[in-house]
């Protein structure tokens, strides 16, 4: 059975976010990630949080999937915020031996954890609402100027989309091989970590062999379908910027301005 991975999954839909140009989404994500790390005051942090909540609601993807993607990183959030708490400077509020908590430390912890959570939510929103093909297509188009300096843009985009295409196929195959090896008496559940890693070798070897065979077949099939690289290739789905994209860029611009104004006018907390 194909395992359920929330992060990086695509949920087909017709929401406003789904219909945005994937290029616009990608650019906005990058801009948003930068602005998340430029928040130094509580009002600017609030703007970022509100914006995140807004696009989660607009995406039409059930909130539980967003929580699912957060579950994976919750430990990272806790550990980094606890560490940050003890690294503050200024007069300590509490003190135990060498450990001291300051107001500055608490502020840092709050900022770091909220930043990471918003980062994950924003990236999840992109992958939840954009099909892998659209995403690689967008990357290919955005990186096109790099082709001028002989950077293999099309090849990289093609590799990415093929890799994504084969993820479920290879997962299924891994399950099949695991079962086959178990049927032959392989023990994968007991023993210490080294034991278990070693037990994985009889699964990896056949998996690699079959992956190479698949790659060979795939190359033949692609050649049979007249594939000859990116040159002279057209696309069935033409992506183009529309009014929606312009409007969302404007919204993004407002958020950026808001954060910057807050940073200038108010004293920085950090």
């Amino acid at each position: 059975m194909v395992r359920d991975v929330a992060f990086g999954q695509f949920f087909p839909g017709k929401s406003l976010i789904h219909r945005l140009d994937p290029r616009a989404k990608l650019i906005m994500l990058v801009a948003f990630l930068v602005i998340i790390f430029c928040t130094f005051t509580y009002p600017s942090l609030l703007i970022v949080i509100l914006f995140t909540v807004m696009f989660i609601l607009l995406s039409g993807v059930p909130a539980k999937f967003y929580f699912k993607s957060l579950k994976v990183i919750i430990f990272i959030v806790i550990i980094t915020s606890v560490l940050n708490m003890f690294y503050g400077t200024g007069t300590p509020l509490f003190e135990w031996g060498i450990l001291k908590i300051t107001l500055d430390g608490i502020n840092r912890a709050i900022f770091v954890s909220i930043r990471i959570v918003c980062l994950i939510l924003a990236s999840s929103c992109l992958t939840f609402t954009t099909s892998p093909t659209d995403l690689t297509d967008a990357i290919e188009r955005l990186m096109k100027p790099l082709g001028k300096i002989h950077f293999p843009v099309h090849e990289i985009a093609m590799m990415m989309s093929l890799a994504l295409r084969f993820v479920p196929t290879l997962l299924e195959e891994t399950d099949k091989i695991t079962q086959a090896q178990k049927a032959r008496g392989a023990d994968m559940e007991s023993g210490n970590i080294f034991h278990r890693v070693k037990a994985f070798i009889p699964i990896l070897v056949p998996l690699f062999v079959s992956a190479f065979r698949r790659a060979y077949d795939l190359a033949t099939a692609m050649e049979c379908r007249c594939y000859r690289g990116g040159f002279g290739r057209t696309r069935m789905k033409v992506i183009h910027m529309s009014k929606r994209d312009v409007l969302s860029f404007a919204a993004m611009g407002l958020v950026i301005c808001g954060v910057i104004i807050c940073n200038i006018l108010l004293p920085a907390v950090l």
Binding site: S131, S161, L162, R165, R214, D217, L218, T220, A221
Partner: peptide, 9 residues
Amino acid sequence: NPDNQLVAS
């Protein structure tokens, strides 16, 4: 093998 000749998701 139909699995190995499909290129898109």
